[in-house]
Design a protein around this nucleic acid. Sequence first.
DNA 1: TTGTAAGCGTTATCAG
DNA 2: CTGATAACGCTTACAA
Lengths: 325, 325
Amino acid sequence: MATMREVAAAAGVSPKTVSRVLNDDPHVSPATRERVEASMRELAYVPNALATTFRSGRSPVIGVAVPDLIDPFFAAIVTAVEEEALAHDLSTLVTSLGHDPSRERTVLESVLRRQLSGLVVAPTTNDHAYLEAWAARIPIAFVDRAPGRLEADAFLQDDHGGARDATAHLIAHGHRRIGFLGDSLAAPTIAERLEGYREALAAAGLPFDDDLVALDAATRPGAAEALRRLRAPDRAVTAVFSSDARCTMAAVPTVTAHPIALTAFGDFPLADSLTPAITVMAQNPAALGRLAAARLVERAAHPTRTLPRRTVLPVTLVERASCRV
Amino acid sequence: MATMREVAAAAGVSPKTVSRVLNDDPHVSPATRERVEASMRELAYVPNALATTFRSGRSPVIGVAVPDLIDPFFAAIVTAVEEEALAHDLSTLVTSLGHDPSRERTVLESVLRRQLSGLVVAPTTNDHAYLEAWAARIPIAFVDRAPGRLEADAFLQDDHGGARDATAHLIAHGHRRIGFLGDSLAAPTIAERLEGYREALAAAGLPFDDDLVALDAATRPGAAEALRRLRAPDRAVTAVFSSDARCTMAAVPTVTAHPIALTAFGDFPLADSLTPAITVMAQNPAALGRLAAARLVERAAHPTRTLPRRTVLPVTLVERASCRV
DNA sequence: TTGTAAGCGTTATCAG
DNA sequence: CTGATAACGCTTACAA
């Protein structure tokens, strides 16, 4: 591990000159440059990125924190952030938050100490007041879910409208008793989607019935049980709106075994190849990630510029077969 | 951004004392500790992780480089590395290499400059001689694919045996003309799986026919075309062995539309819910990632210990319906 | 128990 | 065009 000092000594110049060569400073004579480069090769010199980064006080890294990488929705966000970061010569420090809200703060704070250039987070909690001091120093962008008790850029999808339209779609197909499938209403996105579902019912003059809301459906057994209850004679739903992709995927085995009309929030791989193919309200995770990362870069470059805090992307209905079962 | 020096000044002590408080050094009087902690709160002091890291010369970070995060196989590897890293108080710097081999070197070298504690890589090239100097200083573990021209730890699955057994399974179901579906033979894993396929044919006294090997099938159009050719009267295969999950997923729409006996290398989400459900030879990406990360930690702790270079995990046949179509 | 000095590898500043 | 010096924030020796 040769250092710059050693290279300098070998080339008979000062460290600063080596630094200049490294950074393509034009104020170096060709001869000197030549000599320095030879020494670098000789000693197999590799700059210590840690030192540079420390010196500059800011790490050329964008942090990305999402609940879970296995979920293709978040994987797509991360990938998009990575691509956008790459375009700006930044790397990405990826961290999974897990689905347990109590971990969020610890994890984010430990990431933030690294003097990142920015942070993209798909949060798992509703209260981000603890980030206020951080947000003052480094740009933070929220994706998928809005920040709570904190002013920060947010890139969201139209949870309310999307859920409303997806539900209305089932109503248009003649359904009157429509179940709501979800994980937990603690997540603001899911709560929003429930609101959209209610609005669609109301608009059609249908009653909202708490008993038709089935939660804890993010696992296969959970989804199976939820669907069983919804289908039981006392509830007798003829259609289901699934409020997120994890639940939908968990429900797939049950739905393919005992078909029921289904519309789901969030697309997922192979949704179009199932029997029945699942009708979904498609989000755009890649756009979310890309926009968020781009915003961080922009905030870093123009700290005072005024920009909209909240960007809501539309969702689009992809009609397949499951809504017509 | 208060620094340690400022906290020290505010508390009327030396920076070293603040450092001691921070690191829970017992040689600090309770009174002093109290005073220092008060100042830290007052100034909202947060340690600069960059400085600590620089001073220690090594970043408490494990790098993870995989071709692509969207692929659930690699997402599972990354997640497992993350979990194992977390257990050792390390973070993870995740980078996608892309599927273009020419990017690998640049990306890995830029990651390695950061003085990582270790690197897990699922490579896209066959020649890793350029990593030799790095491998001497920081532990590098390969997953999924073995390193080329480099001595390094590798955690692999039984590509050869798994492909052989998956093909034999089709033969056992009475098939005599079996196609091989793949992306590119440049990947050593795929080449190995082709060998396994050949071995199974040979063991059954069946001829190997180059025309039954269909490549470039990692996209939906590619897979559709490959299957069309294999099925054409001049090839007339009655069964297909798909050599990797990306190809299998790409082939799904064609296979569900025009069923053909299929066995695939690599499991994937919802494979069991398709019609037909896909019979797969399941890998264990989580184990791959976990073992690799654990190995890095072990190498770092015991640089001289002798450990096996190559660990090959078994794959397991998950029989579903597609092999009996 | 606490402090002083020195340095990790790089770069900014300012002289020459 | 080149170099001396200092500094980034923290910690390891070594003293006191």
